[in-house]
Design a protein around this nucleic acid. Sequence first.
DNA 1: TCTGGGGTCCTAGGACCC
DNA 2: TCTGGGGTCCTAGGACCC
Length: 426
Amino acid sequence: MIALVDGNSFYVSCERVFDPRLEGRAVGVLSNNDGCVVARSHELKALGVAMGAPLHLLPPAVRRQAVMLSSNYALYGDMSRRVNQVLGEFSPDVEPYSIDESFVGFSGFPEGELEPRCRELRDTVGRWTGIPVGVGLAPTRTLAKLANRLAKREPAFEGVCRLDAEGEATRRVLEACPVDDLWGVARRSAERLALMGIENAWQLREADPRWVRSRFSVVMERMVWELRGRPAIVLDDMSEPRRRLLVSRSFGRLTGERHELEAAMRQHCARAGEKLRRQGSLAQAVQVFVRTNPFLAGEPQYRNAAVVALPAPSADSRELLAAASRALAAIYLEGYRYQKCGVMLLDLVDVERRQASLLETPEDDARRARSQRLMAALDRLNREMGRDTVRFGLPRRDNAWKLRCERRTPRYTTSWDELMRVKTGR
DNA sequence: TCTGGGGTCCTAGGACCC
DNA sequence: TCTGGGGTCCTAGGACCC
């Protein structure tokens, strides 16, 4: 059996731990740039605010009542780590799946103890971290996801719901579950399934797996097995290094200026380089993309991307930057108001498994060693003295790409400075 | 004035090889 | 009238997740 443990309105719950005045109020947390609502307290949901709703399109009445906060990822990431630490007290097999949910494996535990154990787990997480969680217990991840939804939705479960593979109760639950409520089935697939008369999870479970595979894909076939209680989904190990890496931001305001796009690109490159070195990888190619604001229907639209291969796998920000500059030059056009720019590092390989070139000379080795020392020094300065202590190119005032985040709360658990400001009321 | 950011996996189809 | 058969590798794009 496997449990899915999921924080209720996770970002909102993190904020409430440190500001109890938010308790009982309609609270939302916004995406970067204060653009969309990405987390909602249940009071905010009750006001009819949808996930992903743009802030500026919310009805004025809602905006007056609700507390809207900028996102504070340093805080949420740290709280997430604490929750997982508690989960580790209950099973050696904890797989973080996202910032607010983890799978906890219970194979080998006596069947009868599982539900009480999950209740104790839930209580302990709540007591030790302040975060309320829901627990779904089932033989497969797909069923555990479903059980988790029930645990949160039906008060009678008191936050913990077990769903077995067989039995009348399971059948009733699956019949009441539209296919697009399943983990991994969204609008497109649901539409196609509906055309074939499959509208709820029970109908999908009863379909012939081979037929499903031939009409859809191996992904949908796995869904059938999972619904029948046979595990078919393996998660990739979150501790493995990423295979690609993206840094992108929307601009605080639109801009057509080439130098502003270049400044943003440099910033993203530097950040991407840091992430790359932190996970011990080298990139073999760099992609840059730009686009206008697709929501402005009346404006001329443009989006494009270019990839530039690096001469050799590298984690040197200067080399990433040189490649990214060429990519940007290849796609930049005058006459558009750009909304977003991003840098993606591709074909990442482990630094330890770097393939040496036949043409390498001792000078190449020496140059690589110097590059590594320089980047290590750069990362340390920026880590210890604060972001952007050392940077590429000159900063400008009033950057278009500067983020709006006007309502961020203090980083209570990771910044002494900000915590002290709370205490002294400054 | 104003609509996020960061990932993964799978498939189809083209290029290429013998 | 008529132009093989079987592979691999790569990429772009779709779909999905949180």
